[in-house]
Design a protein around this nucleic acid. Structure first.
Length: 668
RNA sequence: UGGGGAUUGGUGUAACGGUAGCACGACUGACUCUGACUCAGUUAGUCUAGGUUCAAAUCCUAGAUCCCCAGCCA
């Protein structure tokens, strides 16, 4: 029982080509940056990616996509991958986050079996934007000298007011001040002679640009604050746009992959590097020296899972409000939360790779994340038995005190995992849900007089039901068929089983099993897109996202170490939580097994291919106004719509209406 | 109002002028000592309107819708 799920082979990820591969292939073909086409023997520059988090929060599943994407590219092209902390804003950043990020990235990258950012063939290393502060400052001075930057003494409010509109240019009265004056003020800024906000260094680009990022963006702002890495060396800090390209450039990053919202920043990214390179030469001759490396920024759509919020602000809010028990609460979409929940790095990797890489902003069914996890754990997790809601069964034809040690298959998916021994006794517990006093037609588990198989043990027939004064079932009496030891029906002369049972249920020995706290998690939100309905994402919080029960687990689990994963048969996958103390085990349910029956019974199983439209959505789809839509439905429309008062329409109905509207154009 | 992106089954994603394919989901069924897993089958799509072409998801024109941008955040 020591098989560690995380050591089992990961499901082979599909090669999954995407548009970034096309771009990189083109760069290689064009011998851009001297990449050459034979990557294995490249000298100097190679395909080099990076993951650049700001250490101002915990990583979440969205970041996991970026990390895997960047690392997978480095691996595919025999290149390198850097972890770089984009620590340019001391007022928001903290060492606590630095440590957590390092640890989470390393954990996730273990899914690649190719080392991480510090070890292995693709290890580029760990870097800090703050190590480049001097370089950035020198380049800023250079820009001022080239007449491409100036010190602006407008306050933040004034800058906002003068920002202009798409058709009205921005203004700054300091734009045309002399180079010497700007140089002096810049030195003063650096020397700490000015208060926060007193002035900034701005690039001189285009105050009338329709792209606001180019309306003389700020390069440096004054922040009198200690930095976790550089201490009090600096009191001016570079802005993201100014800093990021240089970070990439200095690390010889070839492809700087970021999310869609930075698309509008790419002209600026390119402008800054071009501005520095102006006057520079390939061989270093001339006043400014050698050209600096110019990486290619590429944007992709971030991951947006349903039933989830990912913004740092909202996650922080839940932690502060104690909606959850911290950043590593198993319900959180943070990497730390998912780790504690029991997710494997392999399953996270297959999940983020399976959703693809595009520029289309789409949301992903969280169910896919759960499926990737089931897929991995099915192959990897040893099986065990536990009962979440115990119901005692006394086997009347089993002698008191007799113990039968039975063989159990540890993992049917993995014969190498072998077998284990489980004791069978006169008193056992079964799952309360596996018994119905008055069974429904399709219920093929235990009922009075019915026979089921106890997994790997004996066929069991319920003989009587014992209730308390309140009429609640407290105990069952039953008998077993001794001829079915091991769970197999005896075979007749023809070699066929002499009897069949439809149901197999799990059980534990009352005497040998032990109680444990089991935490059952549900989604944190009840709406696919939290906040869509009311405008406030908190309105969609799921009040029942955590349920705690006292279960009974088979004895073999008693010494399971923290972090060990199991499949409790028929119930789901579970992991030993870090809250476990000697003699007091705590289990997290990672995810349930798929259960068509339960889903259908709870009415949760609405066919996914019947999309429901609200009237507003349908009206939008039909490109008509909502009141017109109502008129169409109740008066003019297809006859079978005339009498309905439903507030929702199915996809098919919307299609029907669409056809109708097409054939019967509405007046204006 | 200006600029930058995007639009293919229910969902996600291919097709790079030449048979609209794959995965997930859903639905049927088979198998089963986990109502799991596995296997087989079914289902369903190119935002709209024009145009070019022997041929258009792909090229052209016009439009629609959604997302991003006016932090001294990243």
């Amino acid at each position: 029982m020591t098989t560690d799920a995380s050591k089992a082979p990961a499901p082979a990820p599909s090669p999954a080509r995407h548009f970034i591969h096309d771009l990189i292939d083109a760069d290689i073909k064009a011998n851009r940056w001297g990449l050459g086409t034979d990557l294995a023997t490249r000298e100097g520059i190679c395909i080099h990616t990076r993951f650049p988090p700001e250490p101002n929060g915990y990583l979440h599943v969205g970041h996991a996509k970026s990390i895997c994407l960047n690392f997978a590219i480095a691996q595919a092209y025999k290149g390198k991958f850097n972890l770089r902390f984009d620590d340019t804003n001391p007022s928001k950043e903290d060492q606590e986050y630095v440590d957590a990020i390092k640890d989470d990235v390393r954990w996730l990258l273990s899914a690649f079996n190719a080392g991480d950012y510090e070890t292995g063939p693709h290890a580029g290393g760990i870097f800090w934007a703050s190590d480049y502060f001097q370089f950035m400052f020198d380049r800023a001075v250079e820009l001022v000298k080239k007449g491409k930057a100036y010190v602006c003494q407008l306050t933040g409010d004034e800058v906002s007011k003068r920002r202009g509109t798409p058709s009205v240019p921005a203004t700054s009265p300091f734009r045309d001040r002399s180079i010497t004056e700007s140089l002096t003020l810049l030195e003063e800024m650096r020397a700490g002679k000015h208060q926060n906000g007193a002035m900034t260094l701005r690039a001189k680009i285009d105050l009338a640009s329709p792209n606001f990022n180019l309306r003389d963006p700020v390069l440096y702002r004054i922040v009198h604050e200690s930095h976790h890495n550089t201490g009090s060396t600096w009191c001016i800090y570079p802005m993201y746009d100014w800093a990021h390209g240089f970070e990439d450039s200095l690390e010889k990053i070839t492809h700087s992959i970021c999310t869609l919202e930075f698309e509008n920043h790419r002209p600026l990214y390119d402008w800054f590097i071009a501005a520095v390179n102006e006057g520079r030469t390939d061989d270093g001759s001339g006043p400014y020296g050698k050209k600096i490396h110019h990486p290619q920024q590429i944007e992709f759509a971030k991951l947006r899972p349903t039933y989830t919020v990912l913004s740092k602000r909202n996650l922080l809010r839940m932690v502060q409000d104690a909606t959850v028990r911290g950043w590593d609460d198993p319900r959180m979409p943070t990497i730390r939360g998912l780790r504690r929940r029991g997710y494997t790095p392999e399953s996270l990797r297959t999940f983020v790779e399976s959703v693809g890489v595009t520029k289309v902003e789409s949301s992903i069914d969280v169910g896919r994340m759960e499926n990737a996890l089931r897929e991995h754990l099915n192959k990897a997790a040893p099986r065990a038995m536990g009962v979440l809601n115990p119901l005692k069964v006394v086997i009347e034809n089993w002698p008191e005190g007799k113990v039968d040690n039975l063989d159990f298959v540890i993992n049917p998916e993995d014969p190498a995992a072998g077998k284990r021994t489980v004791p069978f006794t006169r008193e056992i517990y079964i799952e309360r849900d596996d018994f119905m006093e008055v069974p429904t037609p399709k219920f093929h588990r235990l009922a009075p007089g019915a026979e089921v198989r106890l997994r790997w043990a004996y066929f069991l027939t319920c003989t009587s039901v014992i209730k308390n004064a309140a009429g609640e079932i407290t105990e069952l009496r039953a008998t077993i068929d001794p001829a079915t030891r091991g769970g197999d029906s005896p075979t007749g002369p023809d070699g066929q089983p002499t009897k069949k049972v439809k149901g197999t249920i799990h059980w534990v020995s009352a005497q040998h099993s032990f109680p444990a706290e089991v935490r059952l998690f549900d989604r944190l939100f009840t709406a696919e897109e939290p906040g869509l309905r009311t405008g406030n994402w908190l309105d969609d919080l799921n009040p029942k996202s955590l349920t705690t029960v006292t279960a009974r687990l088979e004895a073999a689990l008693k010494d399971a170490p923290i972090g060990q994963r199991y499949q409790l048969e028929r119930l789901g996958y579970f992991i030993v939580d870090q809250d476990t103390k000697p003699g007091a085990m705590v289990l997290n349910r990672i995810v349930t097994l798929k259960d068509d029956l339960a889903a259908a019974a709870k009415g949760e199983k609405k066919p996914a291919n019947i999309r429901m439209y609200s009237l507003a959505e349908a009206a939008h789809e039909l490109k008509i106004k909502q009141d017109k839509l109502l008129a169409v439905i109740t008066h003019g429309g297809p006859s079978d719509f005339a009498t309905r008062e439903k507030k929702e329409l199915t996809l098919d109905e919307v299609r029907k209406l669409k056809e109708w509207v097409k054939a019967n154009p509405l007046p204006r």
